[in-house]
């Protein structure tokens, strides 16, 4: 069996690892057009390497074949030249890696944003305090009780949205409004399954009413251009616009009650 194999197992392993590495880059950066973040790729590769090494070493013969060339490189007198070359190159590579990772760059430090910051239990808006645990959309009940009234409310919410929100969040609620390109981070894309569909309506109310300045201090620095909408919109308008957000995107707010 092993005699027939043309490529040594060590080389095989290296080729597989490199193959996976470049397939990731090819797949995301070229084919899909959305690059794979470096930090993620590093971790991905760590586990790919672990997996590959496991497959290559779980039998005794496999392990021997893998270690064999390395042992030979160190011990075999006939491989003196190769050994010297390798022993020079490896420290140089390590040195280069250390140098390049330590070298200061002009890039701004990385930003950490948590997509869903932890809300407070209670917050103040409109001169009173709201308890996020019990806060509910007063209009949500009409969805079942009075669909006609509900669609009217959604329509009113849509008007509020078009007059106030679409400039940034976009007329398709995809976070691509006319001003979006000027903002970093970009406005939230409500169509994304990872955004409003994960949240309860009370959370949205909190974020809309208190805006960027209302965010908690943890995971700072917070960079959110979201205005403090309680200064511009009424409580009713916020609740209506929340109805609209869910209605338009076809998502339902997170809830724990089964229907």
């Amino acid at each position: 069996m092993t005699q027939k194999r043309r490529i040594p197992r060590l080389l095989q392993m290296v080729l597989i690892i490199l193959g996976v590495y470049f397939s990731f880059i090819l797949l995301f950066d070229v084919v899909l057009g959305q690059l794979i973040p470096k930090s993620l790729l590093t971790m991905y590769m760590l586990f790919v390497v672990a997996g590959v090494v496991m497959v290559f070493t779980f039998t005794e013969e496999g392990a021997q074949e893998l270690v064999g060339p390395i042992k030979a490189l160190v011990e075999d007198p006939s491989k003196k030249t190769v050994r010297n070359v390798v022993f020079v190159i490896v420290p140089l590579l390590a040195g280069y890696y250390t140098y390049s990772s330590m070298m200061p760059s002009f890039e701004a430090p990385m930003e950490l944003r948590t997509i869903h910051p932890a809300p407070p239990t209670k917050f103040k808006a409109y001169g009173k305090s709201f308890n996020l645990a019990t806060l509910e959309n007063p209009y949500r009940k009409f969805q079942k009780e009075d669909p006609a009234k509900f669609s009217e409310l959604v329509k009113a919410g849509g008007d509020v949205y078009i007059q106030n929100c679409q400039y940034c969040h976009g007329d398709k609620l995809d976070g691509k409004g006319p001003y979006a390109s000027g903002l970093n981070p970009t406005p939230l894309n409500f169509q994304d399954v990872g955004t409003i569909a994960q949240l309860q309506e009370s959370f949205l109310f909190w974020r809309i009413a208190t805006g960027g300045p209302g965010l908690p201090a943890e995971a700072a620095p917070w960079i959110s251009s979201m205005p403090v909408w309680q200064d511009f919109l009424t409580e009713d308008e916020i609740w209506k616009v929340i109805l609209f957000l869910y209605d338009y995107t076809g998502r339902a707010p997170r809830s724990w009650a089964h229907e």
Partner: peptide
């Protein structure tokens, strides 16, 4: 070192 360090709010 592998993950971002978030300092919790006081």
């Amino acid at each position: 070192f592998g993950i971002p360090q978030i300092k919790p709010a006081p």
